[in-house]
Design a protein around this nucleic acid. Structure first.
Lengths: 204, 204
DNA sequence: ACACGGCCTTGACACTGTCAAGTAAATCCT
DNA sequence: AGGATTTACTTGACAGTGTCAAGGCCGTGT
């Protein structure tokens, strides 16, 4: 009843795939290449994943876990000011998208990953929740409109390539900071929770 | 001096590829399949496009042209109220993304298309410009911050799957309208350009 | 001792994009 | 007008992909 260390090849394949993704982007990620890098034959992955979609889903699951961790640390490192915390969370979002473009693509775009996978969903939901928590001080109560607005804006900003470090890829706007967009969105409620007329009841 | 009708096979291949994309999504689009559907041999496309990236770039170019047209008609059909016009433009954006998911993917995501292609860029720029024009009444002068904010938000909203007609794919927020997000973003400047001297009742 | 069942390998298949060579027709150049 | 050249396409091949079927190897359980 060993049960420990488990099938380490599975993790090795996930790591190999992630490395391939980081080195050569999406087209470099291949079942056979991941298998070769892990030192096994080309058909070995079939015993740990349900084909290529299965490997991609596992990679996405792993990526969402570190994504959630990245967002959390970025938020907590931003201090106590609500605006700074929300902006820090978004900067974590954008930095992750820029520095892990391959993973970001697998997580959000690749049509092969099963986004309803029971192992993936909790990590994805946790990521969303961290952003939602950072929105909370601005409304006092959960406000889906604001949450989705921020989420859409930061995700669109990243997807359109504004977050890239290579300005040659940016559509335009050489010096435009995401913090400006955030300020635009939250201009009318700079921080109603800090000086509330109605004291916000505890949240969940 | 024929110059007319030109290489019609090129257009046929673009149409075939677009049809494949609409029917089976990204994985269904294949050089050989597009060639077969156009009634030519598997190597014929090489004489009209620079491989698969060339075909994808041509499809994206064609798609951006109709995208710009869609945005324009959506904006003009929305009447004269600035908010209605901007919202109409965004609804056109979202409807296009939802009803032409394959084309949308090729246009904005697919890493194979050459987004610096001299034939593609004008149509893409025209699309962006239509959205920018719809933002103009809210500032009076071009305001890159607002433009990018709206653009990011609508693009992110579409990319995250909120625009899909299938609610099973939506992350959450069963009944959340993009118009609400837009109102949130523009709350502080309902239409200062129409009555710029009346600053009165904006905050509460 | 022996069958069993995970884990992995080998081999094959259909399919992909791309290249090289060949063919038929249209065009061009004396 | 007639040969040479260019254009548009076909055929055939090659490496690479995901996936399936069959078999081997080894540890475990009875």
């Amino acid at each position: 009843m060993i049960m420990s260390d488990g099938p380490s090849l599975r993790d090795a394949l996930i790591d190999a795939g992630t490395a391939l993704l980081a080195e050569g982007g999406m087209p470099a990620l291949t079942l056979r290449r991941a298998a070769a890098r892990a030192g096994v034959s080309h058909a070995a992955p079939a015993h740990h994943f349900d084909g290529l979609p299965g490997l991609l889903t596992a990679i996405a699951t792993h990526a969402f876990a570190t994504f959630a961790k990245t967002l959390h640390t970025a938020r907590e490192a931003a201090g106590s000011d609500p605006m700074a915390r929300l902006n820090g969370t978004c900067q974590g979002y954008l930095t992750f998208a820029a520095t892990h473009a391959g993973l970001f693509h697998v997580m959000f775009v690749s049509p092969e990953v099963n986004r309803g996978d029971p192992a993936l969903m909790p990590h994805a939901a946790r990521s969303y929740e961290i952003l939602r928590e950072a929105c909370l001080p601005f409304t006092g109560v959960p406000d889906e409109t604001l949450e989705v607005a921020v989420w859409s804006m930061v995700h669109g900003y990243a997807s359109l390539g504004f977050a890239t470090t290579d300005p040659r890829q940016r559509p335009f706007s050489q010096n435009l900071n995401f913090a400006d967009l955030l300020a635009e969105l939250l201009a009318k409620r700079q921080s109603p929770a800090t000086n509330p007329l109605a004291p916000a009841p505890d949240t969940r």
